[in-house]
């Protein structure tokens, strides 16, 4: 990692990017420690409900259709069938299953999702900037963002220019985020670092700093199209960057691990991590999201088990 990175703001003022070296082995050790937490009973239920509220329910396939996105939006509004809800309602202390935080789709599907989610608090997020590679001219990427915003996206998930980053051209990475942010207007900006391509934790930390300095509202691990996607250690490094940035600037930035979080147990471990590193006040959809698709059903299964004592089968839940 180069020393003394400075970035020029628009208008020519330079400022240093403060970053920190990361020891890979110890980060993995600490992240692993959260997977040893044993979350039981009411605290498990609380955590599972909270997880649902923080999900960006996602479909990002070439095969996505209007029909598929509509179905996903229904699932986002009503994660469980009424039959399921009625069964669980018989149990003491059952609380209605909340809806997810957002639905995340390609720009071409934003209008469909917007329509399907009308009248709900569920937000529409869209991956813009020529997701997932971002390898088109900036002009085209900005147009992509503009289209998504005007189609009604509340949130834009952009990808950073990994090519520029790995070539050491941090100024370009910064400038592009600034420009995307401008185009976003009032839409929230999540900056995807694509940590799987950044290869080292030092890079993840540096990219996090650049993304936050450039005005990202959230930083996000991955597109889900590159392995490895979100991991606990990578998320830990980003959370610590967020905390340091908050200490330094008073600005509060959100975190979104995406890709690879498929079951409730994993999600609860993430919650433990946020809880212990940041404090439980950070466990809110304004500050933490899971980018996931199959996670929701696994959480529902676990909720079913918590109330009934029986393991649910897949048929209890709609596929999407």
């Amino acid at each position: 990692m180069p020393n003394g990175i400075t970035i020029q703001k628009h208008g020519g003022v330079s400022f240093p990017i403060l970053t920190e070296p990361i020891d890979e082995v110890m980060v993995i050790e600490r992240a692993t420690s959260f997977t040893k937490r044993s979350i039981k009973k009411q605290s498990k239920l609380d955590a599972l409900y909270k997880c649902i509220e923080m999900i960006d329910l996602t479909t990002l396939e070439g095969a996505d259709t209007v029909g598929k996105v509509k179905q996903l939006c229904t699932k986002a509004r009503f994660p469980v069938t009424s039959e399921f809800a009625e069964e669980l309602a018989r149990y003491k202390n059952f609380q209605p299953i909340p809806s997810v935080a957002a639905v995340c789709v390609y720009p071409s599907m934003v209008a469909t999702a917007r329509e399907a989610l009308k009248g709900t608090k569920i937000r529409v997020a869209s991956v813009a900037t020529a997701f997932p590679a971002g390898q088109v001219p900036l002009k085209t990427r900005l147009k992509d963002v503009k289209d998504a915003v005007s189609a009604g996206a509340d949130e834009i998930d952009m990808v950073i220019n990994r090519g520029a980053f790995l070539a050491g051209d941090f100024q370009t990475v910064y400038d592009e985020i600034i420009q995307v942010k401008e185009v976003c207007g009032s839409a929230h900006l999540k900056v995807i670092l694509e940590t799987g391509e950044l290869a080292t934790f030092d890079n993840v930390r540096l990219a996090s700093e650049i993304a936050m300095e450039a005005g990202g509202d959230f930083i996000k691990t991955s597109t889900g199209k590159v392995a490895p996607a979100a991991t606990m250690p990578v998320t830990l490094v980003m959370l610590q960057a967020i905390l340091d940035f908050y200490d330094r600037t008073g600005k509060i930035i959100g975190m979104k691990p995406a890709g690879g979080i498929r079951n409730a147990k994993q999600a609860v471990h993430y919650l433990c991590m946020v809880n212990e590193v940041m404090g439980s006040m950070w466990l809110t959809p304004e500050l933490f999201r899971f980018g996931a698709s199959s996670l929701l059903n696994d959480i529902l299964k676990q909720i079913y088990k918590q109330f009934t004592g029986r393991y649910a089968y897949d048929k209890s839940f709609s596929l999407d």
Partner: peptide, 10 residues
């Protein structure tokens, strides 16, 4: 005898 530990990582 002195034993030194150091992590192996990127």
């Amino acid at each position: 005898y002195k034993t030194v530990w150091h992590p192996i990582g990127f």
